[in-house]
Structure formats: C-alpha cells, structure tokens
Design a protein around this nucleic acid. Structure first.
Lengths: 336, 336
DNA sequence: GTGAAAGCGCTAACAC
DNA sequence: GTGTTAGCGCTTTCAC
C-alpha cells in the first residue's frame, strides 16, 4: 500500500472566510468577476485562498445558479479526419470561452433518449451537435428546456435552434468553376448514399454552376461513405474516362478513395485523364499520393462562430434563430 | 420572435413526491439502483415522474455525494488518426459505464494549471490522460486529491496512478521478426524527435530482437512528427537502399509519410526495394497507395481496460498502482 | 462594501 | 420499507 500522499480535506469558502476574517459572501464575491467588493477585501480573500489551496466548487455553484458551464458536444464519426479536426477546434474554443465540453460520440447503439437525459440532468449551458443525423427529439427537448443548441452542417428548421454552415453554395460553384477553367467539358459529382444536408447543397450548387457555364454534368450515385464511397465510384468514373471529366466529391475522404483507386489500382493519370476536386482540406489531401485540390473550410472559424452563437443565445434566449455561414476557400493542388 | 415552446418549469423530487403521495426520500430511492424500496412504491414514483417529466438533477446529486460522474479526458493531437480513434472508443466506453467525459484538448497554449483547477473544481470521478506530455503537476494534484487517474501510453511512475500500455515489447519484436522473415538482412528504425515512452519501448524491443537474430540494425533520427517525420526520414532511407533494408516506424503516420515520399517522389518500389512496417493500424494504412503492414492496437481494448482500471480505483482507492498491457497483433499487408 | 440568512435539489443517517 | 432531518458548498437577496 502506498500512503505517501495524504488526502487533503476539501477546503470550502467557510475555511477561507475564517482565515481572511471575512464572511463567506465576501469569499464568494472575491471569486465572482464583477461582484461588488473592495480591492483590499478581495486581496485578503485571495491570499487566504491561495494559502489553503481553495478552489470554488463548481458543482455547488452550478446547483445554486441552476446552470453549469458544461456544454454537450454531440458528434458522430469522430474518428473521421474532418470530424476530428472539428472537435479538436471546437473543444479548444469552448474551453477558451469558459465552457467545458462533455463529449458524446453517438452511433447506432447509442440511444438518443438516453443521451438526452444525461445532458439535461447536468444542467448544461448549451449543446452543440455536429453529427450526420442529429436526433430531432434532442433538438425539441433542448428547445423546450430553453437549452441553447447549435447545429453544425445541418438545416433542420426548428425554433430556438441556431445553425452554422459552410458556404456550400460558394464551394459547389467554385468546384465547378475550377474544373471548367482547367478545360474540363464534362462534369461529374459523386453522390453518396446518405449525403447529408451539406453534401446535397454542394452538389446542387455544382450542377447549377455547370449549367450556367453550359457544361454538361451528371451524378454518380454510390453506396457507402467516406473512402469506401470513393472506391465504389471508381468503376463508373472509369466508364466515362474518354470524356476527360472533371469530378467533384463533396468530401475529401471520398475524393481520396476515388483517386487512390484510380491511380493505384487502374494506373489512371490525374490530372491528365481526369480532374478531381474534394472538400474540407483534411491533412491527407496534402499527402504526396493525393495532392488533392480541394475546398477548405476552416474548423477554427466554425468553432469560433459556434461558440459565439452559443454565448449570444445564452445572453438572449428569446431571439429568432440565427444562421451563420462560414466562408470557404479554394486550395489548389495537383489533381485538377 | 418564436414563442411556440414554453419553458417548462424545473420539476423536482418534491413535485414527484407530492403526486406519488410519498416522501422525497422515496423518490430518491426509486432513482437509485440498489436502494431499499418496495416495487409498488417505486412503480408509483416512476409513474408520477414520467407524468411530470422529472429527471434527477445530477448537479444536486453531485454536490451531495461530493462526486460527479464526470471524467476528465485529457488529450493532445486529437486530430491525429490514432488519437481520434482512441478518443472515440474511450468516450463511448465511458458513457457506457455511466461516466461523462469532459474533453480537454491540450496544446502549447493550454496552461496545465488552468486545466487542473477546472477538473478538480468539477469534482470529477477520475481523469484519463492520453497525451504525449501529460503534465506531471496534474498527476500529482490528482493523487493528492485522491482523484483516480489513468495514463495511457505512458510510463511515469507515480503513486496512485494506473497505467495502460500496449504490448510495445511484443510489437517491436514482432516488427523485427516479420521483416527478417521476409528476407531483410538490414534493419532500420525511424526515431522521432520526441518519441514518447511507447516509441522508445517499441524501438528498443525492435533492436533487441534484431540482435537476437543476428541481424544488424540502426536508427534514423528525424526532426518532426507524424507524417512529416516520415517525410524527413526519406533521404536517409534512400542512402541505405542498396542493403534492401527493413524499416520500422513506431507509428503508421510516420510510416505513411515515408512510404508516400519514397513511392511517389522517388519511384521506389515497396516491398521490392525495402520492407516497411508501421504501428497502430490506422484506417489510412489500408488505403491502396499504402497497403501498409502494421502492428495493430485495438482502441476498444484500450478503452475497456482504461475504464475498468478507473472503476477499480474508485472502488478501492488505496491499492498500489496497476499497470495493464493490451495485446497487439500483426496486420500483414503488402509493404513487407 | 459587507454580513446574515435562505435556499438551489438531492442523498444519507437515523428513527420508526 | 419509509419518512424526517440535516446537510453538501455555493450564491444571493436583503438589511446595514
């Protein structure tokens, strides 16, 4: 048995008050920004607190204020490159702004009802959902409980629900533009089994722009998702190769699956035989085998806007829902 | 302004008790597994609670029990493929076992002191650290406060700190074995700038096994990390190519950087001109351009063991630190 | 600016 | 098995 380290008794505001020779209220005020307290008292309290190793008990504060700084972060497919970047940025931004992200990775086995009660039971300050399929029940319950909710990359139209999206319209159009500018006269979009709101928006903008430019464009519909979806698209792309097409994949992982299959299984030369553009600018897009041209969405921008929305809603719960659009930029590499 | 949805007043155990015609204690017991309460009373309570939409307030419970179900999850480089997989698995396992992960993504800008107070202020049930550089201060403070702490992939020897590691010894030896079995008579390990405990262990086991087999082995030391580290190793590998070496990278991202550079920048044929083996089995290792042989560590196994350790320590805070080793397996692909 | 008192919603010890 | 009572540690009116 190891007993070198002693259990330090929990020191409370009462202890600090005693040492500092003030009341517990004073201690509380010393640790509350903007509370009315004289600099001298605050100083005394802070000193005593430091001596005792006092920390405010956030659970007690939460009970009292009926709200904690916890924010539910609901995410699917976290191990996907773009999602991982997104959550990394989001978690950091939340902490920077004084929130504490509670992470929930959902999948088929995770019942939404269960999640819901977890979240609401903790008196969270808000909820952020970046998931392909955010359970509507959660959204509704959050609204009912007046819990601020921000949806990322979704379009569900619910009251009290704020949303942040990339500029999918611009992104889709940009993809068509760059492909056409590089000389492609036949455009193809790869459409996933379950494309999600953003995917649909990007592809429809892509086709729209193609039509404006008078360039024929079509879809390849595939079963599967991510890299596997791209792999699945390869046979159809191969069939259309004599048109020297420009292909748009609404996410980099899909583009990479396609590119990888074409280059390494079929010895297709890119961009000579086809042009390819992805979306997201994940780290792998820069890798040598890929050198993938793509549309970049800054996860930092997303994170910043998301937390901004959250704070606004907390301050002002009864305004109409906001929708924020994050800008996208073209990252030109060798695949177009 | 949208006002369709009414703010639902917070319903407390008192309300439920009144409706069910019992005391608040009875309500509490109905929601506490293993509490002594008759089935009939429980039934009445549950019914009343359902009618009112009651949920136990976990903040209040936490204040009372002096412990929440929150678990601090401290991670660096979350957007790295293996880390993302790891956190995904860990977060799911924690939730499955009744814990709630609070996610902290650390980097240079995140002061550890700050983190620490956040964590301890929330009365967390435990802390899990899977980071390249877990701040020792955090470990010590957790120990002092009797907060269970599990370290993943680390070897710091601190009292009250449990650890879970992959079987780096086996993994490193396996890497040497498979390379030698494939006919390599010259072995190289790529050593990163800051290899971390696991990296060191893997590489030293690799060399040890090489020595046992009577095969010469050396290191390539590189600046940089992950994919970039692999890129940086390429020139040195190229110099040694006439030995038809077997190269071991202590992580897949490094192996991929090397492989990608060699194949796509220098037209080196793998496995004809060199054998390559990585570590972790990230999804990208399976991609066509890579087809990377690797040592697999199951993130699910890690997650399960980690949470197990946490629960043991909570139940039994004063036992000596445990160290658990997670098995690794060889995933044979085309790069060896 | 400061202290006293009340209470956030729950659980646990204690009687019965 | 059930109700009563007493806090958990904090913030917050409300007097002063």
């Amino acid at each position: 048995m190891v007993h070198d380290i002693q259990k330090q008794a929990a020191v409370t505001s009462f202890d600090v008050a005693k040492i500092a020779g003030v009341s517990r209220s004073a201690v509380s005020r010393a640790f509350t920004t903007g509370a009315s307290i004289s600099p001298e008292t605050r100083e005394k309290v802070l000193e005593a607190a430091a001596g005792l190793g006092y920390r405010v008990n956030l659970v007690a504060r939460g009970l009292n204020k009926q709200r904690t700084d916890l924010v539910g972060l609901i995410v699917s497919a976290l191990s996907t490159p773009y999602r991982a970047m997104q959550i990394d940025a989001l978690a950091k931004q939340l902490v920077r702004d004084g929130f504490r992200p509670m992470l929930f990775c959902i999948d088929e086995s995770m019942r939404e009802e269960q999640l819901l009660s977890i979240l609401l039971n903790y008196q969270v300050s808000g909820v952020v959902i970046t998931s392909d399929a955010p359970p509507v029940a959660i959204c509704e319950e959050c609204a009912r409980m007046q819990v601020p909710l921000v949806l990322i990359h979704r379009m569900d139209n619910l009251p009290f629900v704020d949303r942040v999206n990339g500029d999918d319209l611009k992104g889709g159009r940009m993809a068509a533009d760059v492909l056409v500018q590089s000389g492609r006269r036949h455009l193809i979009a790869v459409k996933l089994e379950d494309p999600g709101y953003s995917g649909i928006a990007r592809i429809s903008a892509f086709h729209e722009r193609a039509a404006e430019l008078g360039i024929p464009s079509g879809d390849i519909s595939v079963l599967g998702d991510e890299y596997e979806g791209g792999v699945a698209a390869a046979p159809s792309v191969l069939e259309q190769l004599d048109h020297f097409p420009g292909v748009f994949c609404p996410s980099d992982t899909v583009a990479l699956g396609l590119l990888d299959t074409l280059r390494n299984k079929h010895a297709i030369r890119i961009p000579e035989q086809l042009g390819l553009i992805g979306y997201d600018d994940i780290p792998q897009a820069r890798w040598a085998f890929a050198d993938l041209t793509t549309i970049r969405q800054s996860v930092e921008d997303f994170a910043q806007v998301t937390v901004e929305l959250l704070k606004d809603r907390i301050k002002n719960p009864d305004t109409d829902p906001h929708i924020k659009i994050v800008d996208v930029t073209l990252v030109m590499r060798g695949s177009v």
